[in-house]
Nucleic acid binder design. Structure first.
Lengths: 203, 203
DNA sequence: TTACTGAATAATAAACGTAATATTCAATGA
DNA sequence: TCATTGAATATTACGTTTATTATTCAGTAA
């Protein structure tokens, strides 16, 4: 059993940081508990005082990375000033960029996420839910401003996520450059925005 | 070398039909050339007088199934009378239904397509292109009617395909029932239609 | 000549043993 | 007492051998 100690939180963070570096460099399967332990200067056995196993480390790391992406997208979107439609557009573009950059900078992370998401799709669902909440927030803002008219903002957000899911999965995005993806997504967002705006007029 | 004979065409069809039954029942890898040959009452060696190998059979079959789906969707859409927006809506719903039914009725075909599409994505691209052509046709009809205003119908069709790609891949659709998928797609199509229509007003 | 096959060969997948790794736990030292 | 570990055990990945399957081709019968 893991003893609940004050130092736990910092140690868990340390372990997760070490694990992230290893996973990013080598992928999931080629990263050993021994390697993670060594990076933390502890024995492999001691890792089990903080996590129930490799799976828990991976799950918590994936959740953490997902949360960080969501937070960055939300923060960058908040900084956008302009009409609500610009915020939505920015939100979806930022989302693509963040997803792309996370996977692009570390080859191992593609492998890592592929394995995690196959065995634990609930992680992806949790990420999508968090992400959707941020989108719903912006949608409500648009409704308050009178720019959007939506009967069910929650459902609308689900639809928008469904429409843009392509840009979250490397299996499709990897064939295209970020620029090409942005171009296509911009076109799609243009349609989606017209579709949810109160007036049918665009630019 | 394959001898070019009159009988070839019928035999190739026979082989493809037998192969489809085998693949549908057992998936790609567990279907042997011997089994296909047996179903055709010929020797395995004779298969090579009609196809260069197992891969060619699979590719041609996948192409054929894709073309059949496209054709059915196109035909059913043509039968829809009503405003163009109804045709588009119908087109996208039919597409979902056809894709779903093809994969739903034979467990082996999911495996089959997964393998084919991973090694030969050009098959998927060809299918999408054919399918897009049908969509573009409807879009032009809408433009002629004055219902749609689109600068680049081709690009618009690409965007719509990107938005609805989720409904073509079992990895996501398999978790949901056809009814749930239809509901979500209907919501999405509603947005997309408003997005491309000349007037921002919906029903 | 040609559609067709059996037997030979090449490629691929399955089975299996082995090595590496994940996980547990009794023991230790601070 | 409790954070920590070394050594024991259980899993899992890896490489190698074996069996199955794909493919070729010389040959046969119609």
């Amino acid at each position: 059993m893991r003893p609940a100690k004050l130092t736990d939180s910092v140690q868990r963070g340390q372990i997760l940081a070490a694990a992230e570096a290893e996973f990013a460099a080598r992928g999931y399967h080629k990263t050993s508990m021994a390697a993670i332990a060594k990076a933390c200067e502890i024995s492999p056995a001691h890792l089990y005082n903080f996590f129930t196993g490799k799976t828990e480390i991976a799950l918590e790391l994936a959740t953490q990375i997902g949360a960080a992406v969501s937070a960055r997208v939300r923060r960058k979107t908040a900084r956008v000033d302009g009409p609500v439609e610009e915020k939505i557009r920015a939100f979806l573009l930022f989302d693509l960029q963040e997803t792309y950059s996370v996977l692009d900078k570390s080859p191992g992370l593609i492998d890592f996420f592929a394995i995690i998401l196959e065995k634990h799709p609930e992680i992806a669902n949790a990420f999508l839910a968090t992400n959707r909440d941020a989108l719903v927030e912006v949608l409500y803002q648009g409704i308050a401003d009178g720019v959007l008219k939506l009967a069910e903002p929650q459902f609308t957000a689900e639809c928008i996520q469904a429409a843009t899911i392509k840009y979250r999965y490397p299996q499709w995005t990897s064939a295209l450059t970020l620029r090409e993806l942005e171009l296509e997504l911009t076109g799609l967002v243009h349609i989606l925005l017209r579709g949810i705006m109160n007036t049918g007029d665009s630019h």
